[in-house]
């Protein structure tokens, strides 16, 4: 696995060797390409603004659509149309200021929050177990398995909270392998339980 140690060194050597090219590329990017891109973006935005229908009715329609986006879709399906009519009426009446906007945003967010915290269908023990395995599998797999493996390969002196790196050298790789295997096993069990747990619902 010498390539793991050799790669960063090679990248550094290439950067040092082609420093001039790198600097030139940066100058070209920041002085030529990025202003061009920024200019193109500004022109595109101006073009979009020009294409907008600026009649009062169209402006009102856009304002109402923007305001109603704060509400969840199922709520809009029931009350969206009639609330849009009310918003149009209030804006025409000259009451479409920031107070109206803030009120709609506040109530829209509150409706979303209430909808998301509403109790859903009961969780079965199988689903709970699947959630437990899927939630915990990352710990043995990544910080106790893959990360210490990379640290050993790159000969990083830090041991931090990686259990395997505190063991005598002989036991480090076996423990890393065991942790990765445990993580994969938990992941597989979680996926399998989740798949079988949702199968009956999918048939309904």
């Amino acid at each position: 696995m010498t390539w793991v140690r050799a790669t960063p060194r090679y990248v550094c050597q290439m950067a040092e060797r082609h420093l001039l090219l790198f600097v030139l590329a940066s100058i070209v990017f920041w002085t030529l390409l990025s202003p061009l891109a920024l200019g193109w973006l500004v022109l595109w935005l101006i073009d979009r603004y020009r294409a907008l229908d600026k009649s009062p009715a169209a402006k009102r329609e856009r304002q109402v659509t923007r305001l109603l986006r704060w509400y969840p879709a199922d709520w809009l399906a029931r009350y969206g149309d009639e609330m849009a009519v009310l918003l149009h009426d209030m804006i025409i009446e000259g009451r479409g200021g920031p107070r109206l906007g803030l009120n709609v945003v506040k109530e829209g967010l509150a409706t979303r929050l209430a909808a998301s915290s509403a109790p859903g269908p009961a969780v079965t023990p199988r689903q709970a177990l699947a959630g437990l395995w899927l939630g915990l599998c990352a710990i043995p797999l990544i910080p106790q398995g893959l990360v210490p493996a990379v640290m050993k390969l790159t000969e990083t002196p830090t041991r931090s909270w990686f259990l395997a790196l505190y063991l005598p050298d002989t036991y480090q790789w076996p423990l890393i392998a065991a942790m990765i295997a445990l993580g994969l096993l938990m992941l597989g069990a979680g996926v399998s339980l989740a798949a079988t747990g949702t199968a009956p619902a999918a048939r309904v």
């Binding site: 009350y79 009639e82 609330m83 009519v85 009310l86 918003l87 009426d89 209030m90 009451r95 107070r99 109206l100 009120n103 709609v104 945003v105 506040k106 109530e107 829209g108 509150a110 409706t111």
Partner: peptide, 24 residues
């Protein structure tokens, strides 16, 4: 309907119901 309610409430109670509050 919604607009009628806001106008009526404003008339008899002096309270301007905002659309978010009304539909909530």
């Amino acid at each position: 309907h919604g607009y009628g309610i806001t106008k009526d409430v404003e008339e008899f109670a002096g309270v301007r119901l905002q659309p978010g509050t009304l539909y909530g």
